[in-house]
Design a protein around this nucleic acid. Structure first.
Lengths: 192, 192
DNA sequence: GTCTATACAGGGATAGAC
DNA sequence: GTCTATCCCTGTATAGAC
C-alpha cells in the first residue's frame, strides 16, 4: 500500500484508505490517520481541508483501484459463465470485506452526496460491466434467454458483497466461499 | 418499536435497537440512547453496566425478532422455489439495510466475542434454515441435484445482504430489487 | 430508581511560530 | 510545509445526592 519513498500527501492518502477499509468513516479519526502516515496535524490540515476532504480523495482512489482489478479479472475467460465464475471465485480476503462496499453502511457516507458518489459509481460501473457479460452469454446462446442481464448482474455483485457480511459474522471465510460457489453453480445450471 | 406504556428499561433497549440499526455500534453513543429513550444517565447506568452491555441486550432482541420474521416467511409457499422466492422478494426497506447484518461491518462488534455472537447465530441459523429448504427441493426432484444445499443457501442469504449494500450505495432500492429478482430467476432456472 | 455533578480522554479543527 | 499550542465539543463513565 505504501512505500518508503512516498511523500507526505501520498502517505496520508494511503493511510486513510487503509483505515477506512479497516474501521469505516465514523471509526477513522484524523489523529489515527496522522499517526499511521507519520505526519503531524499541521501537515494534514495544510494539504487537506479536513477529514471529509481526505476521505473523498482516499475513496476515489480505492474505487479506481478496485475497478481496475475487477476489470482485469472480468476480461479473462472464454465464456460468459467462465468470466462470471472467475469474478466470483477470484482470490479475496473475505474477512477484510470490500473496501468500497463497506462505506455503504456508514450513515455519514450515505448522508453526504460527495462521499457517497465514489461508492455509487463503483457499483453502477460493476453492475453494468457484469450485465454486459450476461447479455453476451444470452446473445451467444450460452445462457438461458430467461435471464435478465441487469437483474442477474445485480445478483452476482450482491452475492460477493453479502458474502463478506456472512464471513465476518461467522468469523470465518467459509460462508463467503460457499456463497460464491453456490452462485457460480446456479449460473452454470442456467446454461441454455 | 416502542409504545408509551413501556418502562425505562424497555425504552432503553428499544432505542438502542433503533440506533444500532441506523448508525451502527461505533456510531451510537450512550447520550444518544438516553435522549431517544427519554432517560437520564443515571437511569441507563443503573440498569446496564455500560454501552456494550446494553448493545448486547439490544442485539439479542433484534436477532430474535429477525429470526421470527424470517421463519414465518420461510414457512409459506408450497414448493422450495416458491419458499425461497418468497424469502427473497419479501417486503423490505432496502435503504435501511439489515439490522443484524449491519453489525458485521463494525470492527468493535467483530472484535468482541460477546457482541459478535448474536450476529453469528442469526446467520448460521438462517443458512441452515435455507439449506433445509434447498435440500427438500432437491430431494423431491424439484431442484437440480447439482445444487449443493449449503452453498445455495449461503448464496441466497448473501444476495439479500449484498442487495442492501448495492441499494445504499445507489441511494435507491432498485439494485436490491434487481438482485433478489435475479436470484429468484436463477433458482427458477435451476429446476430439475 | 433517577438526577446532577464531575472527570478525563478523544474527535475535529484553528492559530501562529518556525 | 511542518510543528506545537490551544480550543471546544462529545464519548463514556463514576460518585453521590435525592
Amino acid at each position: 500500500m505504501y512505500t518508503p519513498g512516498m511523500d507526505t500527501v501520498e502517505r496520508l492518502i494511503a493511510s486513510t484508505q487503509e483505515l477506512l477499509w479497516e474501521r469505516g468513516y465514523v471509526g477513522t479519526s484524523p489523529k489515527a490517520i496522522q499517526e499511521r502516515a507519520g505526519a503531524g496535524q499541521g501537515s494534514m490540515y495544510h494539504h487537506f481541508r479536513g477529514k471529509p476532504d481526505l476521505a473523498v480523495t482516499a475513496m476515489r482512489r480505492s474505487a479506481a483501484e478496485l475497478r481496475a482489478q475487477a476489470d482485469a479479472v472480468l476480461g479473462e475467460g472464454d465464456s460468459a459463465v467462465a468470466r462470471l465464475g472467475g469474478y466470483l471465485e477470484r482470490e479475496r480476503d473475505p474477512l477484510r470485506g470490500c473496501r468500497v462496499g463497506r462505506m455503504a453502511m456508514d450513515p455519514e457516507v450515505i448522508g453526504s452526496e460527495e462521499l457517497r458518489r465514489p461508492v455509487d459509481e463503483t457499483f453502477t460501473w460493476l453492475r453494468d460491466r457484469l450485465a454486459g457479460i450476461v447479455a453476451e452469454g444470452v446473445a451467444t446462446g450460452e445462457l438461458s434467454a430467461e435471464l435478465d442481464p441487469s437483474d442477474t448482474a445485480a445478483a452476482v455483485a450482491a452475492v460477493v458483497q453479502g458474502g463478506y457480511v456472512l464471513a465476518r459474522a461467522a468469523g470465518s471465510r467459509e460462508p463467503f466461499d460457499r456463497a460464491v460457489r453456490g452462485a457460480a453453480a446456479l449460473l452454470a445450471a442456467a446454461r441454455a
